[in-house]
Design a protein around this nucleic acid. Structure first.
Lengths: 175, 175
DNA sequence: CTTCCGGAGTTCCTTCAAGAAACTCTGTCG
DNA sequence: CGACAGAGTTTCTTGAAGGAACTCCGGAAG
């Protein structure tokens, strides 16, 4: 799996940049474990069954990236991993994965875990809304335009939108 | 990278199940390309710079999983990939990645691509809300409980659960 | 009719990351 | 002083990703 750093994409795509932080195998599950309270090396290792070497690498990287902090919890050399603000906000991603997985992949037994929303007390899941107007915001509800950090000079045009199968295919670039 | 199928987790975790579908390297970027209108093999390959072999594998798998469809667009053996409903809903994940990446990783140039929300016409990004009450729903706004599809018999209570660093940390389990 | 071409993959070889399991290091406790 | 436990290292093997060349198919060109 030789260096999958998406380098070509890093410049122009927030998705690729995000994947560069938590896109490696196991990273999202490590994030989940720490989120739910499994904060110590051996706990996470036992829970996931991940190789210790890989777990070390991932934790080190996540700390470097500011997703987690490594904090001593004892006089002895013992450490716990805690989510930073940056990491906590990344949990949004996990909640969306959960919602999608529950909807499309849940076994006949139903979802394995339920979330109760503090605000309303109901078992619920997340839904995506526009931060501006509060209306639903999903794949079909947006147009993409080149932003300030867009790639090359020629990238000024449009983005997803059109995209006719047969006709004049724009084949834009990405985000 | 020998078989990272998260099998131990698949039974009990929608996050792991979702990762099993789009967690492999490149898959989210392929999804993005198809979403924005790059639907043909060579287009995607050129855009991502991915190995043709890996692209073949990923596309085949995504089609098998019902994320995309492979449709002929010519009398000749030419095909395009289109998102299914299942795949389109997965784009939510990309939109959340974009939002997080824009917030935490955007270069000094600003975000590379902007999204205009049809409903309000504003440049915006997604926000997570409770599907029930519409209030914000983020990492700290939920309690997790074991659902019907929870793991083993002993998993009735919590899962990872205990594991308080020091005090009585709730540290619920996962999804 | 034969040749050319372009999209869509295959094949093959190399390299490097994930798995597995044993080993190390460091304080504390009995 | 020896056992212990948490938190990693080390070492070796396997297999997935890269890369580049090769194949296959049907229409277009000559």
């Amino acid at each position: 799996m030789q260096r999958t750093n998406f380098s070509s994409q890093l410049a122009a795509c927030s998705i690729a940049r995000t994947l560069d932080v938590i896109g490696e195998p196991w990273s999202p599950l490590i994030l989940r474990d720490v989120w739910v309270g499994l904060r110590r090396f051996d706990q996470i290792q036992a829970d996931l069954g991940i190789s210790r070497k890989v777990l070390t690498e991932r934790l080190t990287y996540l700390v470097e990236e500011g997703i987690m902090e490594r904090l001593p919890y004892d006089q002895r050399p013992r450490y716990e991993y805690h989510l930073t603000q940056k990491g906590t906000e990344l949990v949004d991603l996990l909640m969306v994965m959960t919602a999608w997985g529950d909807r499309w992949l849940a076994g006949e037994a139903g979802p394995p875990v339920l979330y109760r929303h503090h605000a309303c007390g109901e078992i619920s899941h997340v839904d995506l809304r526009c931060a501006h107007c509060g209306e639903p915001m999903h794949a079909g509800d947006v147009d993409a335009l080149a932003g300030p950090g867009a790639a090359g000079p020629e990238s000024a045009g449009r983005e997803s939108a059109e995209a006719e199968p047969a006709g004049a295919e724009p084949a834009d670039q990405l985000a």
